[in-house]
Simulated assay, not measured.
Amino acid sequence: MSTLAEKADKVEKEEVAEGYRAGRTLPLRVELVRQLKRRRTLIMFGILAALPFILAIAFQVGGEPGDGNERVNLMDTATASGANFAAVNLFASAGFLLVVPVALFCGDTVASEASWSSLRYLLAAPVPRARLLWSKLVVGLTLSLAAMVLLPVIALAVGTVAYGWGPLQLPVGGTLPSGDAARLLLIIMAYIFVSQLVTAGLAFWLSTRTDAPLGAVGGAVGLTIIGSVLDEVTALGDWRDFIPAHWQYAWLDVIQPEPAYGEMIQGTAISVTYALVLFALAFRGFAGKDVVS
């Protein structure tokens, strides 16, 4: 004699509409178009696109960077070439500005549906919960990656027009040919994206726990800032190695005559580990959540 659960499963299978495929619900293309049309996406991309112009104007008004400094750093080489200007834009924005779009795109995605009271209708479509989260996560990470690429690409174009196309001047002396500089910028962009996966994981997990988008986005940004503050506490010693923010500028080690990738590898391992745990928590928690919004 079949159990009640088996009977329920049998009825559910019989009632599934002909042609229904769970994997075809909420296609990535549809979700991507929905998110691209949102005002917050356009505003965020507009801010990132404007930053290189703002920095170029600042250097034009304030004069050459590094005047009067005894020690040359990356910021002091900003006007050496378009490649240097792009690297400086990444350096100036990696600590906070690039955190915001990641938290926004990954933290607003599920919570906003709940705040609009449309989440339950998506699940009633029926869109399986895992499928809904997967679509939301992939699109959120895609938009985050687009933000990471948009900034240096525009900065490279602005810097090339303003300061010319040339080799990447290293802060410690020497230069890298344009081809090597372009490859290096790609590595830096990839690493910054990976280092921001922790923020993405925090934002996405919080987005599945709250109906307030601002709470998810603000919580992820706030926790990321707290991590950066804790990293400044030298009394923590080796415990700082487990703080993702400790490795956010590890990519500076590759802008050297002899690039070093050791810290980037450690930072990647820390970020990916934390992110996978947070994504798993989001999927597990949402699977049994009572969705009433």
Rank of each mutant, 00 (worst) to 15 (best):
W239C: 11
F286M: 09
A87T: 05
L197T: 12
L185Y: 00
K289E: 11
P167K: 01
A287V: 06
V88N: 05
I43G: 04
E12T: 09
K13G: 14
G159R: 08
Q169A: 07
A8W: 05
D253G: 11
A155D: 03
G218E: 11
V153L: 10
V100M: 14
R240V: 01
V30Q: 15
D180M: 05
G63I: 12
R71M: 05
M44A: 06
W251D: 02
G62A: 04
L278C: 08
R71K: 15
T77M: 12
A235Y: 10
L48N: 06
P257G: 12
L26E: 10
A56Y: 09
L202W: 06
D238F: 08
D290M: 15
A182L: 15
V30R: 08
M75I: 07
G166P: 10
D290P: 15
L119V: 05
S228Y: 11
P244Q: 08
L133G: 13
A250D: 04
Q256S: 14
A182K: 02
I226P: 05
R209W: 05
N69Q: 14
T268R: 08
L26R: 13
F279D: 04
Y249D: 12
L223F: 09
E31C: 13
T109I: 12
A124Y: 10
F105P: 03
L137G: 05
P128E: 03
S207D: 00
L42I: 13
P152L: 04
A190K: 01
V277K: 09
V139H: 05
F85Q: 10
V88I: 07
V72E: 07
I243A: 02
R129N: 11
S178C: 07
E113D: 11
L150T: 00
G237Q: 13
A212D: 12
E14L: 15
T160A: 09
T77V: 03
L141M: 03
V198S: 02
R120L: 08
L197H: 00
I192Q: 03
D238Q: 14
L145F: 04
F279E: 03
A269Q: 08
A103N: 08
M44F: 00
V221I: 13
P213T: 04
F193R: 01
E258G: 03
L223P: 08
S195L: 03
I192G: 00
V72Q: 13
V277T: 02
V11A: 14
R21W: 08
A58D: 13
M264C: 11
K136V: 03
A50G: 10
Y261W: 13
D290N: 14
A155V: 02
V11H: 01
P126D: 13
N69A: 14
D76P: 12
D9K: 15
R240Y: 07
L150A: 01
V149M: 09
T25D: 05
T273Y: 06
V99E: 03
E18R: 15
G164D: 00
G23M: 01
A280K: 04
A287M: 10
L36K: 04
A245Q: 09
A86M: 03
R39G: 10
S178K: 12
W239H: 14
P171I: 00
N84R: 09
T79H: 08
I192D: 01
A181K: 02
T41A: 02
L122V: 06
V277L: 14
V254T: 07
L276S: 15
M189I: 15
V127G: 06
